[in-house]
């Protein structure tokens, strides 16, 4: 698996570029991951990202977009506005998690 330098930190990533080890993630690293995909983090961005981290820690997998919206109450439309195009994958990337596996 490739290693890449993010914010001066050497991290292992998978073949698509997602962080391999969620435990190396910090909010500082998350800010930098977001910047790399053209997103400037605000409080509105952090709310779902923190949920992803907490949910992954409990459930052992990355929540799908629907799970994020039903569990946090953030409308799906807003998630699309915050993380345009591919919100589920972009949120997973910023949160240092694998992309979600679930279909819905």
């Amino acid at each position: 698996m490739p290693t890449t330098s993010i914010n001066g930190q050497q991290v292992e990533v998978n073949e698509e570029g997602f962080l391999l080890d969620p435990s190396v993630w910090t909010e500082e690293l998350g800010t930098e991951l977001a910047r790399l995909i053209g997103i400037t983090m605000t409080d509105a961005h952090w709310a779902p990202i923190r949920f992803l981290r907490e949910d992954h820690a409990v459930m052992g997998e990355t929540p799908t977009l629907r799970r994020v919206t039903t569990q946090t109450g953030i409308p799906v439309k807003e998630l699309f506005a915050l993380f345009p195009g591919k919100p589920a994958k972009k949120m997973a990337y910023v949160a240092g998690l694998p992309k979600p596996k679930g279909c819905v």
Binding site: I6, G17, K89
Partner: peptide, 14 residues
């Protein structure tokens, strides 16, 4: 802050 222009990033908007 290190410049990360060589960072390997997923191609979200290819």
């Amino acid at each position: 802050m290190t410049e990360t222009e060589t960072a390997f990033v997923p191609a979200f908007d290819d």
